[in-house]
């Protein structure tokens, strides 16, 4: 219950407000649905020469995968738009992700590789975290935009041409998915290294 008091009073003791935690987990579920159904859709025409093992995919066949993909897309887009709006309106975006000086990012990246990057204060993201979280936000935006071209290439001509046409948009969509799954792998590895971060994303303590 102290949690609730913290949130309404806006105490600085809080790491992640309730709305942010809710959106994080909705996004996590939506991304898993999108990626797993997306792999099944890719398997219908595996243009990179390899297929994703079917047990790792969602939908059972192409039509089922498409149903999942075009249902979960509303979750990703709706939740993502709300996330951006709340972050910008509350000033959390500016507070937690900026400034992001390059020299600090370089120094933190070196420290991270040496295993010496500090996680002492969960209220403060180090430069590598800031860069990684900003990266994944931009990457999901690219996934949404390239997905829009794949879904509606005739109706969004400017976006289609920006991405180099329909066939090029397929590659962009797949590349952005690969970047996203790489982020998730690193993200999960970091949680395993610092389990406290998982607790704060669930209970905020």
């Amino acid at each position: 219950m102290t949690n609730e008091i913290d949130e309404t009073s806006g105490s600085m003791a809080r790491v992640h407000p309730r709305w942010l935690r809710a959106m994080h987990w909705i996004n996590a579920v939506a991304i898993v649905l999108m990626v797993m159904s997306g792999w099944r859709i890719y398997n219908a025409d595996p243009f990179l020469g390899f297929a994703i093992p079917n047990p790792m995919t969602l939908g059972g066949w192409l039509a089922g995968a498409l149903q999942w993909h075009f249902a979960a897309m509303w979750l990703v887009v709706g939740n993502g738009a709300l996330y951006l709006a709340c972050n910008i309106a509350s000033g959390r975006f500016a507070r937690r992700f900026f400034p992001l000086p390059l020299h600090e990012l370089a120094a933190d990246a070196v420290a991270a590789l040496k295993g010496r990057l500090s996680h002492t204060d969960p209220r403060h993201y180090n430069a590598v975290q800031r860069a990684a979280y900003l990266f994944v936000i931009v990457d999901i935006a690219i996934l949404v935009l390239s997905g829009l071209v794949l879904w509606k290439s005739v109706q969004f001509p400017i976006l289609r041409e920006l991405l180099g046409g329909y066939e090029s948009a397929r590659r962009v969509h797949f590349g952005a998915m690969t970047a996203l799954t790489t982020f998730v792998a690193v993200h999960l590895a970091m949680i395993a290294l610092v389990p406290r971060t998982l607790r704060t994303m669930i209970f905020d303590r």
Binding site: V32, L58, W61
Partner: peptide, 26 residues
């Protein structure tokens, strides 16, 4: 070949095994 792999029978089998697995996983 891909059509036959996606035939309704196989689809039903795959879908039931998959969505059960997928859902319980999630």
């Amino acid at each position: 070949v891909s059509r036959r792999l996606d035939s309704p029978l196989r689809r039903r089998f795959l879908r039931s095994s998959l969505s059960l697995g997928g859902l319980s996983l999630l």
